[in-house]
Design a protein around this nucleic acid. Sequence first.
DNA 1: CAAGTAAAATAACAAGTGTTATATCATAGA
DNA 2: TCTATGATATAACACTTGTTATTTTACTTG
Lengths: 215, 215
Amino acid sequence: MARKETITVDRILETAFAMTREEGFANVTARKVAARAGCSTQPIFRTYKNMEELWSAVYLKAISFFQDYYGLYPRTGKAPFANLGMAYIAFAREEKHLFELLFLTGGTQGGVELSEDQKKSMYEILNGAGGNVVYEINLARVQGCANPGDIFMKMWIFIHGAACMTLTGDYDLSDLETMVLLEHAYNAFAGRNIGEHPYGDDRDADQGEEHGKTV
Amino acid sequence: MARKETITVDRILETAFAMTREEGFANVTARKVAARAGCSTQPIFRTYKNMEELWSAVYLKAISFFQDYYGLYPRTGKAPFANLGMAYIAFAREEKHLFELLFLTGGTQGGVELSEDQKKSMYEILNGAGGNVVYEINLARVQGCANPGDIFMKMWIFIHGAACMTLTGDYDLSDLETMVLLEHAYNAFAGRNIGEHPYGDDRDADQGEEHGKTV
DNA sequence: CAAGTAAAATAACAAGTGTTATATCATAGA
DNA sequence: TCTATGATATAACACTTGTTATTTTACTTG
């Protein structure tokens, strides 16, 4: 009765998502998506009412992509928050554009802006990935922290900081170093010292430039 | 001999910088700057070869703006890194667009991209603000840390994380709370416990959702 | 095979961008 | 006062964006 559909919703969304991963949200324009999908812009506006709907779909796909990524990330760490941190930081390193979209700009990127109810907070996204945040807090409690929520906040600030710094190239530690760093941080926040930071009068440290002005 | 100059370089740069503060780098377009400066686009291209040069000038102005901001920020904290952190986090809260430009995207924002040698790392920017980073590291050493560089890295990750989270609205503590948080973090990393995180079997904490799936 | 119908392609519109050619204007020097 | 000169304004070019009207194409059904 009519011509057969050749360009599907999936194909368009997959294309737009792949472009987001590789080039960032801002490069997902109607013509660029069409060119990469090998069609005109028309099928896009047949399957999506407008570009905003496509962007929204890409954003939602990015969320579930992260949740899968997080769910499948190997759990090799012993300390609470270590696996959470490892996965989050690895995601920032390997999926810079998706990380930026989800956790840095919160759905606002390069002129493209999602509506308020489309955006999700990092906590919503994380908790959607299997309720791990809650689990981490409980694990911290089980392991004897008086205030696991407080530790979670501190650890989360720390983890988020390291992840953000990977984007600008200011954090570039290996997985192993990151794991050690996360364990140190947890132990420090939990009040457990592991002999790594004895305080006394040791002045043999390497960093040695002289004086500055004010604090 | 000729018509008097009415639209100066300063006026254009000031306008573009004000727009960056208020609306972000991506909104600094030739026509928008001209409209706000009350002239046509022509004076812009007389004083700057092209928009890239203007953007570069805005970026440099943002750097020195931050350095002034940092230099003038009141020093009320006692712990090392507390004042650095307070100023940095306050800057992120009060100058979101400038913070984003300088420390999040590193000169890349909304299609506008600065050349590699124009961009500066956060360490360059910070050290330009009076060599305070070096001073902080030395202060940490004086106060008896075996590895002040290591503590600096950890504190910096922590401070940067809190600042980044202010942009997405995930960090919203008061100045006082932030100060306490920074002091706790420093003491934790330095191996000094202050009785805030005793570990034992205390399970009276407030956060209480149940179980998750995996770590 | 012919007809109808929906999908896809083409082309266009309006708005925005950087940039430049042209025209206007105001002022300093003759 | 007139003129030259450089600073502005105007207008246009070429390009990109989202979106839509129109045309072409291919396939299903009678």
